[in-house]
Amino acid sequence: MPVPESSDRVALVTGAGRGIGRAVAIALSRQGLRVALTARSAAELAETAQACPADTLVVPADLLDLSGVDQVFDQVEDAWGPVTDLVLNAGTSGSARIERTSDEDWQHTLDLNLTAPFRCVRRAVPAMRASGNGRIVAIASVAGKVGEPYIAAYTASKHGLLGLVRSAAAELAGDGVTVNAVCPGYVDTPMTDATVRAIAAATGRTPEQARDALARKQPTGRLVTPDEVADVVLLCLANPSITGQAINVDGGAVQS
C-alpha cells in the first residue's frame, strides 16, 4: 500500500544502519519520503543512505545518551521540519539463564529496547498533535507476546514496548496519530547471525544447524526477510484506521 502524500512527509528511522532498519528506510525512500537515518555507526548509515533513492539525512547518535534523542530530532527539524513518521527499530538482544543475567545486562536491554523508544515517542508527539497527523511504528517482537527461555530481559523489554504502543495509541487516536507495533519472528539479519553464533558456541552445533533450528521455529520453515517486515511497516504508515495493533510477521508461529 503506497504511503499517501509522501513528498510532504519526514520519516525518522532508528537503528537504520542494517537489518530491518535499513530495509524500512529503503522502502520509505522508494515511496518518496525524506528519510532521516540514525544509529551509532556512521559507516553503516552511509551504506543505507547510498541505497535510498530519495533524500536522506544521516544523523549518527547513541540513543542511550540522555541528550541523544533531542539531538537527533533537533537536526531533523532544522533540516526538514517536524518528524511525521517515526519508526522505532533500534534495539538489542541477548541470551542468558535468569540467574546469569546481570543487572547491567538487564538494564542495558531495557534502556535500549524500551526507554529509548519512549523518549523518541515523547519527543515526536507534540508536533504530531499540533498537526493533527502522525504515524509511529515500533519494531517489537513475537517475544513481546510469549515467553521463551533464556531471553528474560529481551522478552520483558518487548512486552513493555507493546504496553507503550497500546497506551500511546489510546491516548493519541483522537489527535490523528496512530501508534502500532510490528512483531517479527526470527528475521534474516545481523542480529539473528549473532544469535546463531551464540547457539553454536553454547551447544556445539554448527552454525548451519543453529540457523536451521531457528528457521524451524516458524511453520513456514524459513527465516523472515527484512523486506517482509518493511512491507508491514508501510501498511501501518499508510492506513489511518490501524492503531494500537501489534502485527505478527513470524511465519505463523504465534497466532493472535
Score class of each variant (00 low, 15 high):
residue 58 V to M: 05
residue 85 D to G: 10
residue 129 R to N: 04
residue 187 V to K: 01
residue 67 S to G: 15
residue 13 V to M: 05
residue 111 D to Y: 01
residue 74 D to Y: 01
residue 99 E to P: 07
residue 60 P to D: 11
residue 248 N to P: 10
residue 97 R to N: 10
residue 36 A to L: 08
residue 65 D to N: 15
residue 226 P to R: 11
residue 166 R to Y: 09
residue 226 P to T: 00
residue 156 A to H: 13
residue 41 S to H: 13
residue 122 R to C: 08
residue 214 L to E: 05
residue 98 I to V: 15
residue 14 T to R: 04
residue 96 A to K: 02
residue 209 Q to M: 07
residue 249 V to Y: 05
residue 33 L to A: 12
residue 184 P to S: 09
residue 106 W to N: 00
residue 84 T to N: 13
residue 241 S to A: 14
residue 129 R to Y: 06
residue 159 H to W: 13
residue 109 T to W: 06
residue 128 M to S: 06
residue 162 L to G: 00
residue 108 H to P: 00
residue 78 D to S: 15
residue 4 P to E: 02
residue 121 V to F: 06
residue 152 A to P: 11
residue 191 M to W: 02
residue 131 S to H: 11
residue 83 V to S: 02
residue 81 G to H: 05
residue 29 S to R: 09
residue 209 Q to N: 04
residue 183 C to D: 00
residue 234 L to C: 15
residue 44 E to A: 15
residue 226 P to E: 06
residue 237 L to D: 01
residue 191 M to I: 06
residue 109 T to A: 14
residue 80 W to T: 05
residue 47 E to M: 10
residue 131 S to L: 15
residue 215 A to C: 03
residue 212 D to K: 14
residue 39 A to F: 07
residue 140 A to C: 15
residue 101 T to V: 01
residue 119 R to S: 10
residue 61 A to M: 04
residue 3 V to R: 08
residue 96 A to Y: 01
residue 32 G to S: 10
residue 170 A to P: 01
residue 180 N to C: 14
residue 67 S to Y: 07
residue 24 V to D: 08
residue 55 D to V: 11
residue 41 S to Y: 02
residue 133 N to R: 09
residue 213 A to L: 15
residue 25 A to G: 09
residue 54 A to S: 12
residue 218 Q to I: 13
residue 69 V to P: 09
residue 187 V to H: 03
residue 242 I to W: 07
residue 140 A to T: 15
residue 84 T to G: 10
residue 241 S to H: 12
residue 48 T to F: 13
residue 159 H to T: 14
residue 147 G to S: 14
residue 7 S to W: 10
residue 106 W to I: 09
residue 111 D to M: 11
residue 142 V to H: 01
residue 234 L to E: 12
residue 81 G to R: 03
residue 228 E to K: 08
residue 9 R to N: 04
residue 89 N to D: 12
